[in-house]
Design a protein around this nucleic acid. Sequence first.
RNA 1: GGGCGGUUAGCUCAGCUGGUAGAGCGCCUGCCUUACAAGCAGGAGGUCGCUGGUUCGAGCCCAGCACCGCCCACCA
Length: 859
Amino acid sequence: MTKREDRLKQLEQRKRYEPAEAEARVWGRWEEARAFHPEPEGDPAENFSIAVPPPNVTGELHIGHALNASIQDVCARVARMRGRNTKWIYGTDHAGIATQVKVEQQLVDEGTSREEIGREAFAERVWQWREQYGSRITEQFRRLGASLDIEDERFTMDEQYAKAVAHVFVALYEKGLVYRDNYMVNWDPGTRSAISDLEVEQRRVEDTLYSIDYPLESGAGSVTVATVRPETMLADTAIAVNPDDERYTRLVGEAATLPLVGRRLPIIADPHVDPEFGTGALKITPGHDPNDFEIGRRHGLEEVNVIGEDGLMSAAAGERFAGMSAEDARREVVAALREGDSVSGTRPYEHDVPHSHRSGRRIEPLISLQWFCDVGRLAGPAIDAVRDGTVRFHPERPWTGVYLDWMENIRPWCISRQLWWGHQLPVWYRGEERYVGVDPPEGEGWERDPDVLDTWFSSGLWPFATLGWPERTDQLRAFYPTDVLSTARDIIYLWVARMIMFGIEFTGSVPFSDVNIHSVIQAPDGRRMSKSLGTGIDPIQEIDEHGADALRFGLLAMSSTQDVRFSAQRVQQGRDLANKLWNASRLVLLGVDPEATADPAAAETVEDRWIVSRLERLTESTSGLLEGFELSRATLELYDSFWSELCDWYLELAKPRLYSGDNAAVSAVLLHALERSLALLHPAMPFVTEEIWSYLPGERGLLALASWPEADRGRIDDDAEGRVGRLIEAVTELRRYRDEVGAKASVPIPVRVEAHGYEELDGQLARLARLELAADGGDPVAEVRVPGGAVSILPSEAFDPEEARQRIAARRAKLEGEIERLERKLANERFTQRAPAEVVQAERDKLAEYRAALDAARA
RNA sequence: GGGCGGUUAGCUCAGCUGGUAGAGCGCCUGCCUUACAAGCAGGAGGUCGCUGGUUCGAGCCCAGCACCGCCCACCA
């Protein structure tokens, strides 16, 4: 037995596609060939590169990662097949807060804490954690078939990467774009760190709104203010009213006395105050409220801090309250005010309150000494790049607008974090001296700033820092700028915008030209998919059950431009398609002439020309859809064409010739159709297509490295498409007739074809519709309209004539209804006069067709 | 408070520049037809959220309303 015969025997025995077994083997072949590891040759214009959004090192692949990986893999595989030197940049993110929290939890479980073991030991623990779990996500990407350059893995805390981060910080500092300032920040009591505006989320909260009377200094009564946070009154430094509020005009310039504290509070006028709210008088607490902070700076007010970074009341709160938690202080302050009879009212009050996205704790606005990045000055070129199309969002609407709106109103970014895991600031202090530099300062006595950078600061450098920037490496020269970035919408501001800003600022070019924003996949019941809710779906489990190709197909098919619910049926559809591909391939490969090779030019019949033509159209359309990132449409169209056209029609049409002695031509066409289908489906379903590819005759390399088909318009054949199209319609009509009149499946019906256009196809018509062609045979008992005429049904025992009569009556009724509708439409002068001539003509043609059909149905 | 998106067959979703609605799954009927029962053939099922408007003609355009969801926002 030759090797080839052995392979075919194997194929014959494998009646089902078993993904688990095939996938491991196929991955091995790719890896052995180092198919996804490019050499840094050529230039970015001819090469293709795409940087994966780096997952958290300690994380696991979730369904969103799986979708995004499928999308990026389609892009990478198509580019690779097009012969472009393709690099899909791989790596993970140190994910400051998220990782630190996990490791801290581990320490707590061991009965210790990060404070106890110290900063250095803590960092070591995190690195250990990474060693332990860092490879898990890589393995998961493998299972999915993602053609990442896994050999060349990066990590945002790598030494080289850290150097890039420090370099950027220092450069921005030297330009004055990074600075240290005492400013109001979002303090997260949970992580005990400042966080940026983007890490804050609003939550609906039930509070109590207290009305408090502040006596006027003049002794002439009091001013009543409203607050949900009475404990902050201890830090009040003014009372503000609206300048147009006539009730208070007289009081502006006077002062009130702060109860419990005795501080003198000037009464000031500021347009921020809404006269409609409460009494129209607002207590101003510049130290603990972002609005009041702004008002305070406008009016040069004193900034008092009564709540510390530990969440406890500070000494400035006074002896009575110092050391209490803010919550305790609230109760005590209210009690004290009540003693003084200063509380004039309370009412329940529901409003939005900022919370930490990370810890879930209520944000404590504080004035704190932090580092900021003046992104406003980096935004200009990043806005222009999107405006002029250098960077394009897909879909363009609404994301271009979303991006631009945010960028145009961008505010300073607080970049320092009071954490231990992350890029420590390259800043040192010695007394009043400050040193900022990539390398540590010379000399004794320098102390390094303990803060680390916001994780998104380092992520913002991802597309170029992964390639070795700021060194001018071969990788950078070959693959930067990258081509595509794909992500969900939730990190457009956090990540995408910052990459564009940093990319332009530091490399002089945008980091990518196309940004694909994909769906967010929700749980099947419409809730958010999340581990804590128990609504998550594990992609690896899906792969175990249905295969990677099935999951990939399902995800690509279900995603679109809007959020979608996870659809198990789509995954199943993918599994079915993989199996269908497998079995259709068995039919072809086991039946084909052993000497044959794929050749569309071998087409000898109209149906051969038809499938060749259809495949060219499919090729053209698939390429177009993929270029426009319409992956869902592309995937579903491929499914439909392969299943309905190639399998349901062409394979059935080809069978008689395939099984005849003279099957050389049909073999060549079948192999062509199979090769073309495998190539087009490979980016979406790489495993099964690669597996089948290995069974094709002849010496051939990997499908992953084969060339992407280019549509040949010269092979598009309108005549063949028209004729086979009519054949399909006729067969369907006749099958429906058979079914309706209850003809037994196994008994052919005698007929006489009285239609033109079936010259080379009447044999196929008879076979597929199970007819017996007769030249004569007496008077027909019925007629079935088919394109180009009718098929007369001759008397036989194949069905019940009464059934047939009823069917004809029903058909006549339907046709009469249609005719009436069209007649009415065409009698309407406003339609015939105003509608375009071709539309009117089309309606007339349709009417004529229906009338002819009705006429024929009289038989 | 501002903005964006959704509402189409029992379920999940398509529907490009307006010309009498599509897919998968599910359902019904008939088939183990030698690639595939994870299959084949046929079928039923929709007043396209509501109300107006523009148009010869609206799922598609305009206005308003209802419900659902998301994003942004410094009214205590």
